[in-house]
Nucleic acid binder design. Sequence first.
DNA 1: GTACTCACG
DNA 2: GACGTACGTGAGTACG
Length: 932
Amino acid sequence: MSGAFGKGHHLHLIDGSAFIFRAFHALPPLTRKSDGLPVGAVSGFVNMLWKTVQDNKGADAPTHAAVVFDKGSITFRNEMYDLYKANRDEMPADLRPQIPLTRDATRAFNIACLEQEGFEADDIIATLACKARDAGGRVTIVSSDKDLMQLVGDGVVMFDAMKNTVIDREGVEAKFGVGPERVVDVQALAGDSVDNVPGAPGIGIKTAAQLINEYGSLEELLARATEVKQPKRRQTLIDHADQIRLSKKLVQLDCGMALDYDLDTLEVKEPDAETLIGFLTEMEFRTIIRRVAQELGVDAPAVPETAPVAAEAEAIEQPPFPEDYTWIRTEDELATWIARATDQGYVAVDTETTALNEMRALLVGVSLALAPGEACYIPLAHKQNAEADLFATDALAEGQMPMERALALLKPLLEDESVLKILQNAKYDYKIFKRNGIEMGPMDDTMLISYAQHAGLHGHGMDTLAERYLTHTCIPIKDLIGSGKAQVTFDKVPVDKAVRYAGEDADVTLRLHERLKPQLHRSRVTTVYETLERPLIPVLARMEMAGIAVDRNTLSRMSGAFAQKMGALEAEIREIAGEGFNVGSPKQLGDILFDKLGLPGGKKGKTGAYGTGADVLEDLATEHELPRKVLDWRQVSKLKSTYTDALQDHIDPATGRVHTCYSIAGANTGRLASTDPNLQNIPIRTEEGRRIREAFVAPEGKTLVSLDYSQIELRILAHIAGIDALKQAFKEGQDIHAATASEMFGVPLDQMTPDIRRQAKAINFGVIYGISGFGLARNLRIPRDEAQGFIDRYFERFPGIKDYMAETTAFAKEHGYVQTLFGRRINTPEINAKGPGAGFAKRAAINAPIQGTAADVIRRAMIRMEAAIAGLPATMLLQVHDELLFEVDQGHEDELIARAREVMESAAAPAVHLTVPLDADAGQGVNWAAAH
DNA sequence: GTACTCACG
DNA sequence: GACGTACGTGAGTACG
């Protein structure tokens, strides 16, 4: 492509500064091995640049490209408004030295590198985009910065490299509610807390868009401000007209700045291999060197191995992912791999099965990895290709050894105490092997290794981890088994394809282990991983496999009764509403309640739909009889569909029991989560719902025993925040909510009323959740100032709580995470965000150490429980956050309760000495309702 | 697939 | 000084 820039040309403008900050914040700190220079942001920047270049090699490839940077922090905007961007934190010390290196990187890629003193990157991008567009070419701005959205239009789009999405005119309208040409008007009104653009106080993007759409433009709006109906808005617009005009100037990008560059100089050029490799070698980016060298068709130079500072060297040697892996067909071949694994003392293992549910899944094959790029797959139960063999689809495919022979060979390896088995989501494979007579151990789990370090930052599934830590995209399982109706089980997958997929899984798992395991130490969560995560794998596996007996007849009878009740309610509702409608549709219900019946109630934000939640209906129930009926219907409907119907489908035909699946790494705080089915939300709060627990039964001759921690989160709060009055109340075994009320309101305990106690209870819970006047007011249905008064009094009476909240928030802001008493880390990446997200993050940060510590305590109890009740005819079945449910032979209930209580009440020790006692309440009965 | 609603701690 | 708010989950249903 040559000649002056014009029609047919395509210019890519990459927002370099945004790239750098994103890289810096998204990646763990990485230093150059030889001298410790921080290079994490450079590494991320280079990876993103390389990815952008590679992804854009298709038909729509750019003919011209440039990376644009900010230069200096003082721009012409500061002359207009000295507070512009004044709220920006200073650049982190680790990032500063990396800035020039990112310029070097850009030049090494042979991409034009643009910056100009006194101008922001945005202005350079604006000027070039306008020029290119006016010359008849097309422009793609690689950025997700909303300030650049004003440039979108004919021939100009944005590309969000993170989300991989194109932002065009429609995308802008979705974000701002107006077209690109009015974006500055909306921004001028709404202001921007990130850039410290003042805007109009009290007006956000929503309101701004509405005003601009109504008046056509900002100028028109300001000129006719006196016509605005809402008095508050009108006054704001009149009072702050100058400030709004200034804001517009601040957000308006300069399309006509004098540039030192010409579009034609931005023509895309192939990078010079020597220069680029040279730069990367200097940076010691081994992985990317290899990839770049491969792409450019040159040999990758070896980066001299300097002595790593510590064992947790970051840039691990990573060979490319091979096209294929080894297909193990014979026992001899398998024996060779097993011998090598045994010899080296570790091996990554993965199983392929016919289902996600381990109770029903059948083993189809096993893969092993010994080193990065070196993995094999042992197919065991693949079916003959159905198309090739129409009449014998049950026949096994060629090239597989007998299942029992393979398992007999694998068993000694998998059970070898001296060989570490590395798995992703080990509980799954552990159960599969267990069902095949193999008790696997010892194990490492990359999912849990990631969770211990990165809870709160991202998910811990293999695809996510591979993408993030290996920059590798895994073969999607859908490519093999399809999706939806056409989905097949893994045994129908042709073996050659399965080899590639399964081999990759084991390979990725091994590489993730190499990458993440050494970092456990650095994050100081090794003990968390080793004492709170890993030991839970076999414990939970055994609980899940034990399952709990559920009586189908009880559920079935209840379903019938619920169906009748729903029918009756539906008839009544139809009568009252005067027409039939789907009560289960919030949309239709909203139309009936608010449009047809004209009940008071507003629309909700995002979708414009009416809110019809229980709290709304509850308020409406005083005005009309319909909402109450709907509430009743909803309750019954929920119980039927979610519980009495759905639970029946989860009864395993083989065991007659329900086997839930616990996810260890599901909840950020360290809590477990229960799925398929969720047995942690079985009703209890209403009498009718509670009866569902009667269907959870003890088999003949056995009893269900339940122990639950009493007020564990409040106790932990009292300990952490050092609230003597609360601690004393717990030590004396007082009713804690009554004691709180007594402290707060000065009411003696013997004169306590249920209502005062109820209010204190709500405050106690509120404190754990990161209280706000608004939230408490809503919960107690009292005026907001009254709620705020309660909170103020609470803090006055228990100043330690306020201190705890302030200290926790400050810690989170400084470190980006909070900790439980046992050292569990919960990352809080949003804590320093501006805007409404900050409130959420703050409350989550306050809650996480409390909820997380309680989660740690019960984990410790569960891990110790098996040994403590060994010898008793008892089994631990379920965990519900602060409750453990057991099944025990009749006659041994008291012994079980005594031992389990001892374990639970002493679970914090010796790691943590709690200054409050932990109490566990016990119950027993023939079903769960009776046992609680 | 997303939004809404509601079950639990 | 306004904004939008209780913390953490999973599942069923409606709807585009």
